[in-house]
């Protein structure tokens, strides 16, 4: 009985709560906000101190990423890219490097450029580009996110590229189990006719100065006159192996999924109580000083739309 009285006090307008559900009082709203801040702090700082139990579940195949990329190119009237095993290996190495050195960037903290991985595997490029994505649950969302970003879209739909290599690596990044997609674009120097006359190309001949991170880079033209011998890749095995501990760690909680679930439940609960509040206040002709409940419902409705629209995942 006492429990039901407390529940009524919390959820239904009554004399005990001054004719307004206790959960809608300013003090209760403050506690709920504080609860969300604590939850957010836990997900932000837990990886630094606590057990590795946070992560993003994903089911992404590199072939599907390549298929979707080519689908976008065909839709835009472009030719498809050929899958290149060397590029895929180079992409795998870049992904493993990010996990090993714990960074999320085009350029590693020690200054290693993306192009290093191309050349390490013997891929002599005329043009090269890199797209990165993390925390997406499916390949469609990742490709859509790249397409929505002008600089990444430029890479995806560039006519300069002929080949593609994609790797999906999973491991521990900043304490959170993460799935990273590395997409390498390239045009092999051997297979391409120079766009500029040889004389001009000679003048422009310089060592490649790859552009820096952030912006999706297209490497400058490397002028070569003599045929390039077939490269003999000599790759450090450490380049392509991701940390084994990360692979074996068990993911228990998704920060995004948990926050999303709790937020949705809170909004639905508050919305329902607000609707009950409107109905009972109208029937009982309760007059009180306070905010407009209809306005609150409308605002929380928009927040609910954000929660439903929100997708995990970032591109770089």
């Amino acid at each position: 009985m006492k429990f039901f009285r407390k529940l009524r006090h919390l959820l239904i307008p009554h004399e005990s709560n001054n004719h307004k559900a206790k959960i809608l009082h300013n003090s209760s709203l403050t506690i709920i906000i504080f609860g969300f801040l604590v939850l957010h702090s836990v997900f932000t700082y837990l990886p630094n101190f606590g057990p590795k139990i946070l992560g993003f579940a994903a089911n992404i195949s590199p072939d599907e990423v390549i298929r979707l990329t080519n689908e976008k190119r065909v839709t835009n009237g472009l030719s498809t890219l050929t899958t290149n095993a060397t590029l895929s290996q180079a992409a795998q190495a870049k992904g493993a490097d990010m996990l090993n050195k714990d960074y999320w960037a085009h350029v590693a903290p020690d200054g290693t450029q993306p192009w290093y991985f191309f050349t390490s595997f013997g891929y002599q490029y005329r043009f090269a580009g890199e797209n990165l994505a993390r925390d997406f649950s499916d390949p469609t969302s990742a490709v859509d996110a790249w397409m929505a970003s002008p600089s990444h879209k430029e890479n995806l739909l560039s006519t300069k590229y002929k080949e593609i290599g994609v790797a999906v690596v999973e491991g521990d990044l900043a304490g959170v189990d993460t799935t990273i997609i590395v997409q390498f674009f390239g045009t092999n120097l051997v297979d391409t006719t120079p766009e500029t006359p040889i004389a001009e190309a000679k003048a422009a001949s310089t060592s490649p100065t790859p552009t820096r991170s952030g912006k999706l880079a297209v490497a400058p033209i490397i002028a070569q006159i003599s045929p390039i011998p077939t490269p003999t890749p000599s790759v450090n095995p450490a380049l392509i192996s991701a940390p084994s501990s990360a692979a074996s760690s068990k993911v228990l909680i998704s920060p995004f999924g948990t926050t999303r679930g709790i937020s949705l439940v809170t909004i639905i609960l508050l919305g329902t109580i607000m609707i009950i509040d409107i109905v009972l206040s109208y029937r009982r002709r309760i007059v009180r000083i306070g905010g407009r409940t209809i306005a609150h419902i409308a605002f929380l409705g928009m927040i609910m739309a954000i929660i439903l629209i929100a997708r995990a995942g970032r591109v770089l």
């Binding site: 709203l29 906000i33 926050t259 999303r260 609150h296 927040i303 929100a310």
Partner: peptide, 15 residues
């Protein structure tokens, strides 16, 4: 302010 803060806290942790 509290309703707006609650909405902001939820939305910003997901965006």
């Amino acid at each position: 302010i509290l309703i707006a803060s609650l909405g902001l806290t939820m939305a910003l942790s997901l965006i």
